[in-house]
């Protein structure tokens, strides 16, 4: 089988994403800090005309945050992040792509497209568990006119990448994306991109409602970028009646082209619409440096230094009876790159 695959002479690519972190956290005068490997992903892709197969692996701590123990202590273990086969075909200005396997969440990928700060952190909606990185299922995408319009439908089991199927429901996701404007502005190419998405889903053995509504806007140009992402969950954490929303705004601007810039962000999350003060707001500010690595197959090596303050409402923090602020100073050395391989 392997011989047959190689006989067809595919091209290949090796993707790498690393994030090495140091966090200092202060909450109500209690300070703690930790060094962590925040992100480690490696992926391999094989391509033939119209076909691509991908296996992307990531590391995770074998002990989850509160399990206290894991495999051989709390080892870093490798797990699948995406395992998929995709088929693409072009009909004039239209392109059709279908993929199946452990596929990325269509909503998350649409919102992340154009996010220039993805290597700093995932979208807040993913961190908060509103969206999963991947799920077992299939996707069908139709795009046209150089991605100016795109429609996508996805089907998945709805349990995320780390759980098996638990009910007979199938999550159905629809995503519409468009580029209403693309041209030259502020000294270079620029574009405005819009996303709207909806998911009808269920989760867990109780088939609890797990619906999503999402919208996004990104503006990208030579001097920087700006993004807005909104996700609303109808049903969350096993509670069908729980409504959770998350609004995230981020921006970055290059100060010295090729050397670095500044970034800022804001997040407004409502963890339970029925609770009087289950909100959390986060403001973020930071700098990044882009040291050039000539000759390396690296697309980007970036050092982030950020400060954030998160205010948890009285009903948002699990243990505190009053609103509380959390300050974080976060350093991340992020590397993302792709090495193309041809026979």
């Amino acid at each position: 089988m392997l011989a047959l695959v190689l006989l067809l002479q595919p091209t290949g690519a090796l993707d790498v994403a690393l994030g090495i972190d140091h966090t200092t956290r202060t909450i109500a005068d209690v300070r703690s800090q930790a060094f962590e490997l925040g992100r480690a992903e490696v992926g391999g892709r094989l391509r033939w005309p119209g076909i691509e197969a991908e296996v992307r692996l990531e590391t995770a701590r074998s002990a989850q945050p509160q399990s206290l123990l894991g495999v051989d202590g709390n080892s870093l273990i490798v797990r699948a992040r995406r395992v998929r086969v995709a088929v693409t075909h072009a009909f004039g200005p239209l392109a059709v792509a279908a993929e199946a396997g452990l596929v990325g969440d269509p909503i998350l990928e649409a919102l992340e497209r154009g996010d220039d700060l993805r290597d700093l952190s995932p979208l807040a909606a993913q961190v908060g568990g509103l969206l999963d990185a991947a799920d077992a299922g299939a996707r069908l995408r139709l795009a046209g006119f150089d991605e100016r319009v795109a429609l996508e439908v996805g089907f998945a089991n709805g349990e995320g990448a780390t759980e098996v199927e638990q009910n007979d429901g199938v999550d159905t996701t629809l995503v519409a994306a468009g580029v209403p404007w693309r041209g030259d502005a502020l000294g270079g190419p620029a574009e405005v991109r819009l996303v709207a998405a909806w998911r009808d889903g269920s989760r867990g053995a109780g088939a609890v409602q797990d619906d999503r509504l999402a919208a996004g806007l990104t503006v990208r140009g030579e001097p920087g970028s700006l993004g807005v992402a909104f996700v609303r969950a109808d049903g969350f954490g096993g509670r069908a009646e729980r409504v959770v929303t998350d609004l995230e705004i981020w921006a970055n601007a290059t100060l010295l082209p090729g050397w670095g810039g500044v970034l800022a962000g804001f997040e407004q999350g409502e963890l339970d619409a029925d609770a009087p003060d289950a909100s959390q707001q986060r403001i973020l500010a930071g700098l990044y440096l882009d040291p050039a690595l000539p000759g390396a197959p690296t697309e980007r090596l970036r050092l982030y230094a950020t400060w954030s303050r998160t205010r948890f409402g009285a009903d948002a923090a699990p243990i505190l009876p009053t609103a509380v602020d959390e300050d974080r100073v976060f350093l991340r050395l992020a590397l993302t790159g792709t090495l193309e391989v041809t026979p």
Binding site: G237, R239, R242, D272, D315, P318, I319, L320, P321
Partner: peptide, 23 residues
């Protein structure tokens, strides 16, 4: 623990709770 700690009808903090008493 889910009822007490997660948002929902039973979510309730103690007025004597805090970051230090949670450790």
């Amino acid at each position: 623990v889910r009822d007490v700690l997660e948002p929902g009808p039973w979510h309730q903090q103690s007025r004597f709770g805090g970051p230090a008493t949670a450790r």
